[in-house]
């Protein structure tokens, strides 16, 4: 998932170096399957205990998991649809809105110039 442009790890804090292993696409895939496995395990766990639900719907096995999956996907797709309607260029409201100003700031790369521009 994450692309690592150069794979260099020197100059990174030790903690970050520890984590940089996950950057490799192979590891990412492994992580994905790990997640899948955990999910299946959790879904199966529903059969192992007595569920205390408020509503009848909750009694269905792994309903929460399925619901979460569907709801998440629905949110994303609805949001994508919404974006078609509401998306505008950054200087839509006025030329100097905060959104465009952020960008200018980002371009100036404060660390590189050694300044401390932010309070």
């Amino acid at each position: 998932m994450t692309n690592h442009p150069n794979g260099k790890t020197e100059g990174m804090p030790p903690l970050a170096r520890l984590l940089s292993g996950f950057d490799k696409p192979r590891n990412v895939t492994r992580l994905f399957y790990l997640l899948l496995a955990v999910c299946i395990a959790l879904g199966l766990a529903d059969f192992l205990y007595h569920k205390h639900g408020y509503f009848a719907v909750e009694e269905f096995p792994a309903i929460y998991g399925l619901f979460g999956f569907v709801a998440y996907a629905a949110v994303i797709f609805l949001a994508k649809g919404l974006r078609l309607i509401i998306r505008r260029p950054e200087d839509y409201y006025e030329p100097f809105a905060i959104d465009t100003e952020d960008e200018r700031a980002a371009g100036s790369d404060p660390e590189a110039t050694g300044g401390k521009p932010h309070a």
């Binding site: 205990y49 569920k51 979460g68 999956f69 998440y72």
Partner: peptide, 20 residues
């Protein structure tokens, strides 16, 4: 409670799965 923890984890992790 077991119910609460499990269902909550289900909800969150399945959603995470959807993201992935």
């Amino acid at each position: 409670t077991v119910t609460h923890v499990v269902t909550q984890l289900q909800l969150l992790l399945f959603a995470g799965l959807a993201f992935a």
